[in-house]
Design a protein around this nucleic acid. Structure first.
Lengths: 146, 146
DNA sequence: GTGCATGCAAACGCTTTGCAACATG
DNA sequence: CATGTTGCAAAGCGTTTGCATGCAC
């Protein structure tokens, strides 16, 4: 749901990833994207940039980067998986349903609440998913194309 | 992600739903299910009971009941939509990744935190999704089949 | 050279939908 | 009887995977 790292996504090579032009391209794209985007959107961006990375490579790279904690991933309300570079430590997001623009949010209170609650019920391997969705000021006025 | 209602799911007729045997069956099934289940699982339960409701009907009825606020729905971490009768007022869930068993949770603090936060950033039409996942005491011991 | 990475196309799993037959109010 | 509902099969969509080719180390 979120992890930590201030390192740029493009530093993926240090995490045991083999250094290929495709992965560089994907990493660079995510690095530049300011908002949460789906694998397909990232792929479009790449093609728009002239890169010819295959869609499957994007679909294989993104989850890998996320697993390595280099990028964040959230599942949109419609079920797609969205990715974005992560900025700071553990946090959650206030995501715009319209354009994907997100505000990073953190609240120790909530984290503790979740963990405490879960262990109080004897649940193990606890993870939580806290996402807030809404329409950002811009999209609230003129519905954007997503 | 959650609504209120103490009315049994089977009272759907009062919500403008046409009263058909299929819907009665679906409603009854959900009413009996203690944990979060997918449309397909509900369908299996129905078939096991001898009912021959079509899968598409289940897929059409469940979201409708959820939209009417008669049942809760959450999206699992794998992307499927899970449904369950809802017990009380607005709340969230501590869902077992193993068996779907869930504990209902409510915390005004968190609700307020979410809403306040969103409006502070100028976001409109705010909704939030707060789900906690873990392994319930039972599944933590012997991984169950889901 | 060896093994992981890529790309394409086919396969997948969940969900939605077109349509003709049908049952409800 | 007019409409909303059902079931089936087919289509959709996002995502995954098998496999032959190719490249990084």
């Amino acid at each position: 749901v979120t992890t930590s790292h201030t390192r740029p996504v493009t530093a993926f090579v240090q995490d045991g990833f083999r250094d290929t032009p495709q992965r560089r391209a994907v990493a660079a794209a995510v690095q530049d994207l300011e908002w949460f985007s789906s694998a397909q959107q990232v792929h479009e961006v790449l093609r728009a940039r002239g890169s010819s990375v295959g869609l499957s490579t994007v679909y294989r790279t993104l989850p890998a980067l996320a697993a390595a904690g280099l990028i964040d991933s959230v599942r949109s309300q419609t079920g797609e998986v969205l990715y974005r570079k992560c900025a700071g430590r553990h946090h959650h997001h206030l995501v715009c349903r319209g354009c994907g623009r997100a505000v990073e949010v953190s609240a120790a209170v909530v984290e503790e609440w979740a963990d405490h609650l879960a262990s109080a019920h004897g649940y193990a391997e606890v993870t939580h998913s806290i996402e807030i969705f809404g329409l950002c000021p811009r999209c609230a006025i003129r519905p954007s194309v997503r």
